[in-house]
């Protein structure tokens, strides 16, 4: 009798399609244009000052090749966070769209599923196009690696999407997002191995960095792009991200269930 997760999520297709039509233009700028600035500024221009020593750059022959896989992974995190902060609070607090949805046969878990599917779609288009654009620059060492790198970018993006979604459902004031951006997203972006090898952090901080989900995504993405895959490390990276996604899923559903009974 109860509606399956997929069926419930599919009923929201028309809704998310209108959201897409409304937001894709802004998405183009934040998804493609700004990251390309990063690639040019950091990878090409700043990278010009950095010696391309594979021994120091985790096997990359240029700083550009080193930074690109990390940048895309960090970008995936930022898109995921962007899509699960203000939009989620909006659906709860400002537009109350979720309240109209749960008056129908849909349940909170259906709303979470559809919303996360939309985030996945945003991640896939943003990271996919980003990777395609970078292909001609000779930063990929094998033909198949970038596809697996793309998969790991989606994984790390979804890990953050589920975690932050659950956080947002428990947040009553948008001021909390400022804290999340400054104390969460920014340090993660800077110190999780996207811009420099985490071995430079010193032994203690290196281990802290290894505990962050973003590092697991950056590491996977880079190993696949540079064809330096250590399969046992890769297995651990994937396992960590999958566990985060599963835990994040339950954290999100329980958060939304509680929140929708308590306005």
């Amino acid at each position: 009798m109860s509606l399956t997760l997929a069926a419930g999520a599919l009923r929201q297709t028309d809704y998310w399609w209108t959201v897409f039509k409304r937001t894709w233009k802004g998405g183009v700028i934040s998804s493609f244009v700004s990251p390309l600035f990063y690639v040019v500024a950091m990878g090409v221009l700043l990278g010009g000052f950095i010696e391309g020593d594979p021994a120091k750059l985790e096997g990359a022959t240029s700083y550009l090749a080193f930074i690109v896989p990390g940048l895309v992974a960090a970008h995936a995190m930022q898109i995921a966070v962007g899509e699960t902060t203000y939009p989620v609070m909006g659906a709860l607090k400002w537009h109350k769209t979720y309240y109209s949805m749960i008056a129908t046969p849909l349940e909170p878990r259906h709303l979470v599923a559809a919303n996360l599917m939309f985030v996945l779609f945003r991640l896939a288009t943003a990271c996919g196009v980003f990777m395609l654009v970078l292909a001609p620059f000779g930063v990929f060492e094998s033909w198949w690696g970038p596809f697996l790198a793309f998969g790991s970018q989606l994984l790390v993006g979804m890990a953050f999407a589920t975690l932050v979604y659950g956080f947002s459902t428990r947040l009553y004031s948008e001021q909390g997002f400022g804290v999340l951006f400054r104390l969460g997203v920014l340090p993660l972006t800077l110190f999780s191995g996207a811009f420099f090898p985490i071995t430079n952090l010193g032994p203690v901080l290196e281990w802290v960095a290894r505990l962050t989900p973003l590092w697991h995504g950056v590491n996977l993405s880079r190993m696949f792009c540079l064809d330096t895959v250590d399969w046992s490390t890769a297995a651990i990276n994937v396992a960590v991200l999958v566990v985060v996604i599963v835990v994040g899923w339950f954290w999100s559903v329980s958060g939304l269930e509680k929140r929708l009974d308590d306005r």
Partner: peptide, 26 residues
């Protein structure tokens, strides 16, 4: 259900508000 506080979607036009909601019922 007609809730006390309007939960209409301000970003959609009048017709889409009804259409999208109807789709939620399958």
């Amino acid at each position: 259900v007609c809730p006390q506080e309007d939960t209409l979607d301000n970003e959609l036009n009048v017709r889409d508000n009804l259409y999208i909601y109807g789709r939620y019922f399958g």
